[in-house]
Design a protein around this nucleic acid. Structure first.
Lengths: 261, 261
DNA sequence: CCTTGCGTTTCATTGTATGAAACGTTACGT
DNA sequence: ACGTAACGTTTCATACAATGAAACGCAAGG
């Protein structure tokens, strides 16, 4: 029952309360005196803390009114935690587990405009070499990952056509095929691609959600002849079983995928 | 070219860099010494700053490894800016303008589970805020706002049925009717409801987007007899014209609504 | 023209943030 | 089992930097 004095830095403590007050202020911001009052700090102290915020991008100041608003750096805090470089690191164990459980090649990627950008790749122990390269960009429309992301982001059918422009001839995709695969992904939580990028190579892909936002996707690659519908269902169950327990706090698989498992 | 010394608080400045380092650390967090190194601060200083973060929920510490991770308060920073209480304040001018331009009753609401929660309401003749209906919850399925939100969130048709359970008898909605109205909203950016909550009362509603996430909705209420298809189209154009210039940075109307105007 | 309210600056004083080093654990390699 | 390294935590004297009251300059409004 002994009192444990928690070491705290007064200046930092006040700054954090000021940061919360800034966030509570909303898009229009608040004048300095009001912020100082809400955070319970002296006006001068608040001014210097806010100047420091501004210096680091945690606050911006309306040039006309002088009001202070929350800055972009504060907005990005949460995004950085699950940004590309951290994602690859955080999800690598899940990829390894999935690759071992399926004995297949596994990829992690994010959407970058019209393309899916590969962030990580894990090959099974006994690997037959298949096409893949981290850092490579492949069209959204022709990949399982991209289709899973389109479904998870609830992109309406009308907008799907925009992903069909500028496709390399080798990966031409019919509009019907894209609609069909995305619809499948909306229902089942995973998307498929069979020989649409490389002959005899097939993938199934699923999105990775933070809240109700799709921030990444993973895919399993196999020989097309092995990617039967039964195998697809089996792989989708394996994803749920292997990946779920290894996801960092705040991330999840699509609800439709879990429901189907 | 005079040097303008920007007032800064050293402790706060160091704390902010530590916060960024925390965010960069990702979901697994980092040990104290590593964070201190990255932020360029002394280990003791980092420890006290992180203790202060913990105190305010900006950091959490893994009980097993001792690693520090970004806390929930940091995640919420961005969300608070566009949270319910601030939304109502930030969007009130837009509601007033819309009410004046249309001479109709205007509501603002957010989705809360199976219901739409009213945050604000503006009546045409007096600009006084009437709080009577604010705070009220109405079913998602039977309201224009709810249908607009379902469409903007790209909820697939298969999931719409879940919003039809537990409806009061007075607002019973057929599954076909719900699908039809949501489909309409997906196409045109606005949803309609005609006499489905109160006899002779009709609404059109549209979502309000932050990025590609629907965070709120607004609706215009009128007598059902006046809500002709022509009037609906006119109102949707008025929404685009009146609301768009009054939206805070970072918020937007649905693209499909703007395209139709 | 005066007043009011705002963000900003000044300045002396004190308090407090600081860093080096020591401490107590835990986990690991031998 | 031992020694060792790495970690988070605590201590402590010192100096520096954070502090608040008040003054400043500026713009807007009556």
């Amino acid at each position: 029952m002994s009192e444990r004095p928690v070491p705290r830095v007064e200046a930092v403590d006040r700054a954090l309360q000021l940061l919360v007050a800034l966030a509570d202020a909303g898009p229009d911001g608040l004048p300095l005196a009001e912020l100082a009052g809400r955070a319970g700090v002296n006006k001068s102290t608040a001014y210097r803390a806010l100047s420091t915020f501004r210096l680091r991008g945690f606050a911006t100041q309306d040039t006309a009114s002088g009001h202070y608003r929350l800055g972009p750096a504060a907005f990005e805090l949460g995004d950085r935690t699950f940004g590309p470089q951290n994602l690859a690191q955080a999800l690598h164990p899940a990829l390894v587990a999935l690759s071992q459980a399926t004995a297949e090649l596994v990829h992690l990627g994010i959407m970058a405009g019209q393309y899916v950008l590969y962030l990580d790749k894990v090959e099974p122990e006994r690997a037959i070499r298949v096409w893949s390269a981290v850092g490579q960009q492949v069209p959204v429309a022709s990949t399982a990952m991209g289709r899973a992301l389109l479904a998870a982001r609830e992109v309406p059918d009308q907008q799907l056509g925009s992903y069909l422009r500028h496709l390399p001839a080798a990966t031409a995709v019919a509009a019907d095929r894209l609609r069909e695969t995305v619809a499948h992904a909306r229902r089942h939580g995973y998307a498929v691609e069979i020989g649409e990028n490389e002959p005899d190579v097939a993938c199934i892909g699923t999105a990775i959600m933070r809240g109700n936002t799709a921030i990444a996707a993973l895919s399993i690659t196999a020989l097309a002849e092995r990617m039967t519908e039964a195998r697809q269902a089996e792989l989708s169950r394996l994803i749920v079983r292997e990946v779920t327990p290894l996801l960092p706090d705040g991330l999840a698989l699509p609800a439709t995928l879990i429901d189907g498992a």
